[in-house]
């Protein structure tokens, strides 16, 4: 049986851990809320760009835009994998990397870009080359990060070093559901986007300034930046949601353990008192029998 000081020590350490997990729970919840606002904000931007691109495509007929034209199959595939910078987020990183692994199987992968320490570490451990890494920027995300990623991939795509680009990220559906996604961004297939949208804005006749082609060209990077930024905020919201749930259940386990230990502590304490009392009364009785001790 553990001694009373052992139990006291154990309770103290569990209590400290509980304080950490409950603080992390609150922080993750706040970060998730912030990311959700960003998802909504970005959605308006992204869908406007999408609608306009669809409109121009619909009105100027088929054009052989390099970003819309499929290159020959068996081509050079590139992947952007967005995971977290830290662990302690339940199965978030694991689920995402499992999907990445599965998607890359049997593919001619030429480039891997990672966002988040965990993703980089995963590919490096597996002996794969990571061509570019973006770390520690999810918490304080700015559009510049999305812009840098897009500049990099467009450069490679223009130089024909990559033919197809996939983005693997955790889509934040709602607080109870996040889905790992493998999304083909390049070449762009406009019909693939906006599947979950309920209301589609109908655009009437519009003038394109200076010309439909040039507006379209200018929209392509905008659209991609919007998409990448969206994927990053979705990933960040999902990561914090997963961490929030993990920390919540850790806090609850700690509470359960504390209750058990407190119970144990009291029973040991009680037992010690009983033992002491019986020792005292035993000793007293001994003196009493001898008759020279007036109890």
């Amino acid at each position: 049986m553990s001694t009373i000081s052992d139990i006291r020590y154990h309770i103290k350490s569990i209590h400290q851990t509980r304080q950490i997990t409950s603080a992390m729970h609150l922080i993750s919840a706040a970060r998730m809320q912030k990311a959700i606002r960003r998802i909504e904000q970005n959605r308006a931007y992204f869908y406007r760009a999408l609608d306009t691109m669809k409109y121009i495509r619909g009105h100027t007929g088929p054009t052989n835009h390099p970003y819309l034209t499929r290159r020959e199959p068996g081509n050079k595939m590139a992947y952007i994998v967005i995971a977290g910078d830290r662990g302690l987020a339940g199965s978030y990183n694991h689920d995402l990397l499992a999907l990445a692994q599965q998607a890359m199987q049997d593919q001619n992968v030429t480039h891997i870009f990672t966002v988040g320490d965990i993703a980089t570490a995963h590919f490096e451990r597996a002996g794969q080359t990571v061509n570019a890494r973006f770390e520690n920027m999810l918490a304080d995300l700015s559009i510049n990060t999305a812009r840098a990623i897009v500049a990099l991939i467009m450069q490679l795509y223009d130089a024909q070093e990559i033919d197809e680009l996939h983005v693997i990220y955790m889509k934040f559906v709602n607080a109870a559901l996040q889905k790992p996604k493998d999304f083909k961004l390049l070449p762009i297939e406009l019909a693939d986007f906006g599947e979950e949208r309920t209301e589609v804005q109908e655009l009437g006749e519009m003038l394109c300034d200076p010309s439909p082609e040039r507006v379209f060209d200018a929209l392509v990077p905008q659209f991609m930046i919007g998409f990448i930024y969206g994927a990053l905020v979705h990933a960040y919201a999902s990561e914090n949601c997963a961490r929030m749930n993990a920390m919540d259940s850790a806090t609850r386990s700690a509470d359960k353990l504390l209750k058990k230990l407190t119970f144990q502590y009291h029973s040991v304490r009680q037992l010690n008192i009983t033992n002491e009392l019986s020792e005292i009364t035993g000793a007293a009785n001994l003196f009493g029998e001898k008759g020279d001790f007036d109890a």
């Binding site: 006749e205 519009m206 300034d209 200018a218």
Partner: peptide, 17 residues
């Protein structure tokens, strides 16, 4: 992308980069 652009009320529907 082609220079300064000014919009007033009643402009015809347009999209510009």
């Amino acid at each position: 992308i082609d220079g300064e652009l000014c919009i007033l009320a009643g402009h015809i529907p347009m999209v510009a980069a």
